[in-house]
């Protein structure tokens, strides 16, 4: 049984702000043909939508939560159609929009009670579900939401989204702007919710969060680059990836790029990640080339690709110019 079924979904609109078309899916050669997104989410799965701002994540979430009507394609949540069976969906999903900020002038307790009532339930009825999360902020229950720290706000928002025991939880960029420690804690809470059988669709711009999902979709400019488990995506990285280091890292970057056999070269923390267009080239040869150019303490070794390497490679394949802006 699928919790979410999406087929050929697209929603393009002319953005007044940027003067360009944005949204989900991409108009292809013929005007009435659109490349939409297609994917399924299993019940009880954590499914991540990963990509930068403006890639269409929020549009997808709004369609699935019945807030927008797609231009084309179909989507079902818990078996209900997002266009025709809007009321059924609104009864059974939980949603945390990206800019969601609760009612700042109401206390923690008032916020939770209010959302419980709006969703036709009481805090007592579903306390079990939110207990683990809510207990951490319960000592501050008389404090106004506006005075909570970022991490606590996030916990309260999650409690409010969960209070009616939704079967599917939609979290649009819940960790954006949150520091790494709070982010890790938040993902811990999501794992626990998964154990209780709740399906979670979550979006994030942070590639390092991919491994916390069961499966992910990498999204760019409204289309999915790939859908798989994080490990599956990494296993499909086609090229050999080298990590290169020397005493002068910024000169190294220029020198590597100038080399004819180098396909891509990007700075990755304290090393540069290099892919070659010609796999017969050897480590020793590269080593010599760099030594000739005056580099010292050169280190070159083969490494396994990360999600970011995969994303960049896939994005390049779709839009070869995307890396040359």
């Amino acid at each position: 049984m699928y919790a979410i079924q999406v087929e050929g979904l697209s929603k393009n609109y002319h953005s007044a702000k940027s003067g360009k078309y944005a949204g989900l899916g991409k108009p292809s050669a013929s005007p009435d043909q659109v490349d939409g997104v297609t994917f399924d989410v299993h019940q009880g799965e954590i499914f991540g939508i990963i990509g930068p701002d403006g890639a269409g994540k929020t549009t997808l979430f709004r369609i699935l939560t019945t807030l927008l009507v797609p231009d084309s394609g179909t989507a079902k949540v818990d078996g209900y159609d997002v266009v025709t069976e809007l009321k059924d969906i609104r009864q059974r999903v939980g949603y945390m929009p990206g800019k969601f900020s609760l009612y700042q002038d109401m206390t923690v307790e008032e916020n939770l009670n209010f959302f419980a009532t709006v969703f036709n339930t009481t805090v007592e009825e579903n306390y079990e579900l939110v207990k683990d999360i809510y207990q951490q902020i319960e000592p501050f229950k008389t404090r106004r939401a506006g005075k909570l720290s970022g991490g606590m706000k996030q916990k309260l928002a999650l409690s409010c989204a969960l209070i009616h025991k939704p079967s599917v939880l939609f979290l649009d960029e819940p960790t954006t702007g949150v520091d790494p420690v709070s982010r890790k804690e938040f993902w811990g809470m999501l794992r626990k919710l998964k154990e209780q059988g709740i399906t979670i669709l979550v979006s994030t711009p942070y590639m390092d969060e991919a491994f916390l999902c069961d499966r992910i979709a990498l999204i760019q400019d409204g289309i999915f680059l790939q859908i798989d488990s994080p490990q599956g995506i990494i296993d499909q990285f086609a090229q050999t990836l080298w990590a290169v280091r020397s005493n002068n890292m910024s000169k190294l970057l220029r020198d590597l790029r100038a080399h004819p056999a180098v396909d891509t070269c990007f700075a990755f923390g304290d090393v540069h990640h290099v892919t070659l267009s010609n796999d017969s080239y050897t480590i020793a040869e590269l080593h010599d080339y760099l030594a000739q150019l005056g580099h010292s303490t050169i280190e070159v070794h083969v490494i396994k690709a990360g999600i970011e390497d995969c994303y960049m490679q896939l994005a390049r394949r779709v839009d070869p110019h995307s890396n040359n802006h």
Binding site: L67, Y95, M96, Q104, V118, F119
Partner: peptide
């Protein structure tokens, strides 16, 4: 502005 309208619209209310 605060995004609460989205949540309310998605609620059964």
């Amino acid at each position: 502005e605060t995004g609460t309208m989205e949540v309310l619209l998605v609620s059964p209310m």
